Amino acid sequence: MPFTHLLLALIANAAWAFNFIAGKAGVAHFPPLLFTTLRFALLVLLLLPWLRPVPGQMRRVLLIAVVMGVIHFSMIFGGLAAAGDVSSVAIATQLYVPMSVLAGIWWLGERPEPRRLLGTAIAFAGVLVIGFDPVVFLHPLALALIAGASAAFAGASILMRGLKGVGVFTMQAWIALAAVLGLTPLTLLFEHGQAQAIATASWLEWGAPAYSAIGSSLVGHGIVYWLLKRHPVGVTAPLMLLSPVLAVIFGVTLWGDQLSWKLVVGGLMTLAGVAVINVRWPLRGTRP
């Protein structure tokens, strides 16, 4: 991969990593469902030119949009609101990788290689270790929500395998629309103080949903989609392992997270498991 493409991968990782900081700052002011709604309201406006029907695939597109927009992202930002830190959330979101392996076995009857099963076990064990960290142990709802968000993402990933010829921005536009339509009544029913939060938000607080929509969705996903069109998945996917590492660094340096040995060990185990699943090692005696 050329150096410029590696630099783009680094930018995408940083964009996704900083989204955890933006999200944590956003839900500190806005209720989480409202924050998610505002994020996607901006995104759907930006992606209106790509909001077009997908003939013959709309049922699947809409199902993915609901699972991702209404379930996955509301749980992610709900988890950030409930969490005591950013780092544990960033690492726990990697659960979607082993969960995708298990979803493939359950729904598609796939028979993964032994190394993928080993990676799945290591990743889950790592999250269990993280769960006993004092900061995480005091906020079990956060870990439960992130696990639920990861399961939703895994399910959506299985559904996405059946899509053909649907661009990343078209799919994101439908996800954004589903989120706005689905989460608006939910925030009105289950949250309070929305009007005050909107009226009192500073430009910095408005910047949180704006960054989450533009920096994470448009820049981050856009770059990765561009790279995937030019390089194999086996080359591009492992590069994205840097995102949770950068998120932990941002959490410590920008948000004041305190790293305990349980979070470090559990995080390394989780990332190692994800790496075992994603990285295809060359056979001995062959050229990489």
Rank of each mutant, 00 (worst) to 15 (best):
W16I: 14
A149L: 00
Q194R: 00
F132W: 13
R59G: 14
V27H: 02
S202M: 06
T253C: 09
V129D: 05
P238C: 11
P238R: 10
M99Y: 04
A17K: 03
T93G: 00
W174C: 02
P2I: 05
M68D: 13
E110S: 14
T184P: 04
A142D: 09
R287P: 01
T36H: 05
M58V: 06
P53A: 10
A22K: 04
V279R: 06
I175L: 13
G109M: 11
P185I: 10
L38S: 07
V219L: 15
L204I: 12
P49W: 11
G109Y: 06
W50L: 09
A17C: 06
V86L: 14
A9C: 06
G26M: 03
P55F: 05
V70W: 11
L143S: 01
L10R: 04
V252P: 04
I214N: 12
R52E: 10
T253K: 00
G26E: 10
L186N: 08
L271C: 08
I71F: 13
V136C: 06
M68T: 07
P2C: 05
V180T: 07
H139G: 05
S157Q: 09
F35A: 03
R161A: 09
G165K: 05
F190N: 03
R60M: 11
V252S: 08
A82R: 06
P32T: 01
A176W: 08
K229I: 01
V27M: 04
A90E: 12
S150I: 05
F153W: 15
L227V: 10
F73M: 14
V166W: 13
V70T: 11
T120Q: 03
P112S: 02
L242C: 04
W203A: 15
D133K: 09
A142Y: 06
F18R: 00
W174F: 14
P140E: 13
Q57W: 14
G104M: 05
M99T: 10
T187L: 12
V276L: 14
L45F: 09
A144T: 15
L48V: 11
A9E: 08
V54H: 08
I71C: 13
G126P: 13
L181R: 09
E191Y: 06
F77T: 05
D85G: 11
F40K: 15
F132S: 15
T187I: 03
L6Y: 12
F18N: 08
G131Q: 07
T200V: 03
L246V: 09
G119F: 10
V136H: 13
Q57P: 12
V86E: 07
K262D: 05
L7R: 09
W203E: 10
F250A: 07
E110K: 15
G26T: 02
T200C: 00
G104E: 15
P288V: 06
L108I: 01
V70L: 13
G165F: 01
A17G: 07
S243V: 02
G23T: 10
V44Q: 00
P32W: 01
L163N: 07
R230S: 07
G131K: 01
G251W: 08
W174S: 13
Q194A: 03
